[in-house]
Computed example of a mutant assay.
Amino acid sequence: MVSETALENEFLRAEFDPATGWLRSLVNKETGVDVVAGAAGDTHTQICDDPTDTWGHRVISYAWEGAPMAVDRIAVRQSGALRASIRIERSWGRSMLVEEFILGHDARALRVEVTLDWREQAHLLKLRFPTALTDPKATYEIPYGELERPVDGAEEPAQSWVDLTGTIDGVPAGLTVVATDKHGWDVSPGDSAGDIGPSIGITAVRSPVYSWHDPRLLDESGIYSFQDQGIQRFRYELVPHAGDHRAAQPARRAIELGQRVRAMLESFHEGPLGPEGSFADDGHGSVLVTAIKGSEDAVDAPGGAELIVRAVETRGESVDVTIELPLVGRTIEATFEPYRIRTFRVPREGDIVELDLLELPLDA
């Protein structure tokens, strides 16, 4: 179902405030919990002066109050059996932000395609995701793992996702924001009056002078280049969930969001391949295959280069896994401890050997 103010499928219902252009409701229909109910919607876009230098020296937080972008247009873009979408267009100064909210027929997350045309100087734009959570904790993705940090508004790095989990009316709930190409985040506790709830923020753009190191003074008559100017595109997903964010598999979602499916056109011809196939199958569980490549030192081996397979456990649990490699007719069976990275050399025949990250045998 789609209208100019709502998107809905079997698992999610998203309602938009036409005045602010942001969510006034995001219901996880499997739990009945609305993760943003009552949160202040006009805080989604925050533009403010940014007098700091290129690297933000001595800046602890960019969770500053800012002006919202004006909503110019809301329109239904797609209304089909497979997915529906709403486009919301905003502007501020000489800049424009377009967010297209997309809900697939079987999606458990709300995907957003973003186009930002940024023309401001010495300003920054925060995209903020306010929630209705109580007593939340914040979890940030780091390379091959995750890390809990304070809910204090400090600017922190994150690989591809940040989660905020707490309770709503005593029921465990949370919101994970998964994003591409953005690595400066904050998780803020909200205001003391309770008008704004805890929120996740993404630093979408900053436009200080390029390669300017404070305290060097700028010449008022000088001509400078400012960062982040022009058009850029990125994507993010809003993933409401019950108490455990790991059940939503944010690490796997981040890979799928950041690496679009590639289609390869092929002419009609006879061949052994069926209508579908797989290079590798990790079972879609907590262990994620992150790399498949030819080995560096076995190009002269019988049958050609051996296969290198690297995988990591993403949910902080010990698990036995079977990784199928239909392309070479081999199977890896292994035990992964929490967040462990393991690398295997897979020949066409013979024993599968575990390696270190330099592709040297562990027992060497």
Rank of each mutant, 00 (worst) to 15 (best):
R206W: 14
Q121G: 03
R83Q: 06
T5K: 09
L288Y: 02
D282W: 01
R90S: 01
P198L: 05
L217C: 04
F11K: 02
R24N: 06
E120L: 08
T131R: 06
I223H: 12
A40V: 04
F16T: 04
G258E: 03
V151D: 07
E270W: 14
V346N: 09
D117Y: 12
E220F: 04
T176G: 07
R260P: 01
V114M: 02
V151G: 11
R108G: 01
H57Y: 12
I308S: 00
I332T: 04
G174M: 03
E266W: 10
A193T: 13
S188K: 06
I323F: 05
A154K: 14
D320R: 13
L133Y: 09
S25Q: 08
A75I: 15
E141S: 13
A263R: 15
S160L: 02
V2T: 09
G104I: 01
A6Y: 11
V209L: 00
C48A: 15
T54M: 13
Q249S: 07
Q159E: 13
T131Y: 07
L273M: 15
V287A: 03
L307G: 04
G166T: 00
A334H: 05
Q227L: 14
D195W: 07
Q78F: 05
D117H: 13
R58L: 10
L164M: 08
P275M: 10
G21D: 06
G258C: 02
A138P: 05
E89V: 03
D106P: 01
S79V: 00
Q232V: 11
E349R: 15
G271F: 11
Q229K: 11
A305W: 09
G230Q: 11
A334T: 12
A291F: 11
A6N: 12
G285V: 03
W55H: 10
L124C: 15
G283W: 13
P250Y: 00
V239G: 00
P198V: 07
E296H: 11
V114Q: 08
E266R: 15
A122N: 10
S91R: 10
S192Q: 13
R111F: 02
T5L: 10
D42A: 12
E359Y: 08
A37Q: 11
P208M: 02
L362E: 04
G197P: 08
G41F: 11
E276W: 15
